[in-house]
């Protein structure tokens, strides 16, 4: 299982699509590692500089409908090769969310009010997230401020996180 904790990148926008996460012109790459420099290259977000802002970040917190658009698994892979294994959002596009779990990565759905609270308290600050997949909590810490939030990880999602992803699971069972 991956280490889902680390520094947080706040992306204050809804409907961030897979073309923004990894542009189509890089889909000719046939290794995941080759995608590393291009993650979020075309993200339309005022003040965002992919070269500077992604460095060292391991957790993304964002708004609604993250990962909409194309089915490309290159989107979670581009995050994965940058050591970003956790995305927290109000909700996700279906294919992107399934791709995350199929890769053993966490796509955490949170109530809009909780995401609001995260942004209100921590956005703009150097924030560390500690993710506990057993207790299903995510704890944010910036300076003296620390807050814990519960999330859901159960059923099929948890089975995929606990096992070696969907390929191993399916080949064993079907």
């Amino acid at each position: 299982m991956k280490d889902f904790s680390g520094k947080v990148l706040f992306l204050d926008r809804s409907d961030i699509n897979t073309d923004e996460i990894i542009p189509a012109k890089y889909l000719t790459e046939i290794t995941k590692a080759a995608l590393k420099p291009y993650v979020l290259e075309d993200l339309k977000l005022d003040g965002f500089d992919p070269k500077k802002d992604i460095e060292g970040k391991k957790v993304i917190i964002t708004r609604e409908n993250f990962g909409c658009g194309s089915s490309r698994e290159h989107a979670p892979w581009a995050l994965e090769v940058n050591n970003i294994f956790t995305v927290v959002a109000v909700n996700f596009a279906r294919i992107f969310r399934q791709n995350m779990y199929n890769c053993g990565m966490l796509a955490i759905d949170m109530e809009a009010s909780i995401v609001d609270d995260m942004f209100a308290n921590f956005a703009g600050k150097e924030t560390l997230a500690t993710v506990d997949t057993e207790k299903t909590t995510i704890t944010l810490k910036a300076g003296d401020l620390e807050k814990s939030y519960a999330f859901k990880l159960e059923g099929f999602d948890k089975a995929l996180i606990d096992s070696d992803g969907w390929v191993g699971y399916a080949d064993m069972k079907y």
Binding site: E73, P76, I95, N99, W166, V167, A170, D171
Partner: peptide, 15 residues
């Protein structure tokens, strides 16, 4: 539409 891992399992197991 699915991602590559779902596709992979589809190819391998037809599910």
């Amino acid at each position: 539409g699915v991602g590559t891992t779902d596709l992979e399992v589809g190819i391998l197991k037809g599910v």
